[in-house]
Design a protein around this nucleic acid. Structure first.
Lengths: 348, 348
DNA sequence: TTTTAGCACTCGGCAAACGAGAGTGCTAAC
DNA sequence: GTTAGCACTCTCGTTTGCCGAGTGCTAAAA
């Protein structure tokens, strides 16, 4: 399937892709010969192009149009032709980090990084919140707000702070609250969230009920809120620069544009998209390689970001398959680094 | 400017608007005569239409097209021709409220109501968070997270919960924290946020510095976070159903669509839009009446929502001037009610 | 055997031309 | 004051024809 191409074919394929990334339209043999010093005539290029098409690296929108790279073509380009520029980015990273150092709140950091990334790449950026499964609970506390309402606050070591107001029918004495806090602290803090499953929480409930005469209601509410906040599906996805898709000529078609915007409008969809990337490093999905039906004409460049060496979330961009991969790849790389660092710092 | 129209003109204007709201295209005298039993011939209608155009209630996209209502026409329609259906909505309100009763978190409530409203109206919904100026601080508390980081939590009586992680260079003893909590509680709780201005906070700082030998750093951070969260400009605006604008034929034009989407992509813009509505009840801005340049071909239907009788935020929809006003108005009315109630309940 | 020049052919896109349809304004009759 | 009739206007969709870019093939050149 993935044959080796000879030198000339590689150069031609690369030239076509480069040209197409700029022009967004089919590339003909003539233009190619003129703009790139391939030292062969258009006719020869034509023959090579026909070969490349047979092999599946190029496509022809219709007879007598130029050629357009196929998904396979892009895949080859990304895997074999792209030399990742090991640019010296330390300076950049430092600069951006300093610029955003005053952001203390994880949500703010994420949405700012989404914006940053989209501005750098001119594509729409996607970032998922740190996922709860690999987070540890750092702090749980109930605070009394009013006679019959409590505020439940919990903080994870990935810096996520959640809070819920719990309304009770009943009044809870300060003593009981303080007892509860100590108890919950003991039983929950420093635990991996993945371990706080239904069974474990149930066992806590029983124990608590026997020790304090708490109404079941409190625990139910507590339980719901608590569980709800951490369930796997509930990771939020942040979007940045939605309007950049408008700049892409492939979405000048109204129907396509609508489809795309609808996808970006649905949170479940976004979550599906970004969770379809399973790897731990930087991953690229090109066109048909995507699992999600509605983005099979898009490419995804996604990196994992880390907090104290744990893979906690994803950050990436989505755009047309005709994407400026080199630039995008290094941007995603950089920003994923920065994101991890900023969150680490902010969450102590 | 706003003359009285005779009976026949009113009926014709109303018919044109109704028809245009359905068809989204210019209405001719013939169609009107056929579909509405106006008991006059097309020729007569033509004469009336010419009059209405002279008066500014109608517009003609070009000679020999039908007429289209102008902003002024819609204004007249909304003010004089629309009889607000005093439908019995108590049942609906109850139902929806029950449906969403389990939402405890103000942000969730808001974003759900934005979705709900957009689904009901099929236009894009805008909702602003409860504004801080009219909120009272219900609870302030510092919790220790780790040796040198604190979590600052504050809750307003409008149910907004804010939290910030504060990193200190220095370690703070539990005694000091508890002293601080008591002090801040004393000085800040139950105060109107509008009163917590720079002067007041400065005076606190001085007092605190003299009593505890707190590093200035803590207070600075505290102060920044605290102030930042409450500053007037920082009210978030929630969007619901962005993709509904895609269904409006007036945005089938790519250029217009792009412009609109760009507006909705910018948070400051949204904030400007929704804050341009100053009234306390339900307000309608039609086309040119809007202050914000980029939405001068849109209409806005916005209501204020209340928490314990204080006007705290706005909720509304944005769509083409050709809007289904009656339906939209009652939907916005209902949902603004529900929103206020839900938040009131959730925040105790 | 590989490369190239030449040539006929194909197709999309654009602009001009055209007719149908919907609508108007005006005039004159009712 | 209302209506019928008519000439006129303008948009929109369709058709037509043409240009340009590009291809594939063949035969000649290297």
């Amino acid at each position: 399937m993935v044959e080796e191409l000879d030198q000339r074919k590689r150069r031609i394929l690369q030239a076509i892709i480069q040209e197409h990334i700029i022009s967004a339209s089919p590339i003909g043999s003539r233009t190619l010969a003129k703009k790139y010093s391939l030292d062969v005539s258009p006719a020869t290029i034509r023959n090579e192009m026909a070969d490349l098409e047979d092999m599946g690296y190029l496509e022809q929108p219709h007879t007598s149009a130029g050629r357009v790279p196929s998904d396979k073509g892009y895949r080859y380009y990304v895997d074999k032709l792209l030399r990742r520029e090991e640019q010296d980015v330390n300076g950049i990273v430092k600069n951006i980090e300093e610029l955003y150092q005053n952001l203390q709140n994880v949500q703010d950091i994420i949405s700012n990084m989404a914006k940053m990334l989209s501005n750098m790449t001119h594509y729409t950026a996607l970032v998922s919140e740190p996922k709860s499964q690999v987070s540890r609970l750092k702090k749980v506390e109930l605070m009394q707000l009013e006679d019959n309402s409590l505020l439940l606050v919990f903080v994870t070591d990935t810096g996520m702070v959640n809070n819920k107001i719990i309304n009770l029918g009943q009044n809870l004495s300060l003593r009981k609250i303080s007892y509860l806090n100590k108890y919950l602290s003991d039983k929950l803090e420093n635990k991996l969230l993945a371990d706080l499953d239904v069974d474990y929480l149930n066992s806590l409930e029983k124990e608590l009920l026997s020790r304090l005469d708490l109404s079941l209601e409190l625990f139910n509410q507590f339980y719901n809120e608590f569980e709800g906040a951490f369930e796997p599906g509930s990771v939020k996805v942040y979007l940045g620069g939605t309007s950049y898709i408008l700049e892409q000529p492939e979405f000048n078609d109204l129907k396509r544009l609508k489809k795309m915007l609808k996808v970006l409008d649905q949170e479940e969809m976004l979550s599906k998209i970004i969770n379809s990337i399973s790897g731990s490093g930087l991953e690229i999905k090109i066109g048909q390689e995507n699992d999600v039906e509605d983005i099979k004409n898009c490419s995804l460049v996604v990196a994992t970001y880390y907090i104290s060496n744990r893979a906690v979330g994803k950050i990436g961009v989505i755009g047309p398959t005709r994407m400026e991969y080199p630039r995008v790849i290094s941007s995603v790389d950089i920003i994923s680094d920065i994101l991890g660092n900023l969150i680490s710092k902010a969450s102590g």
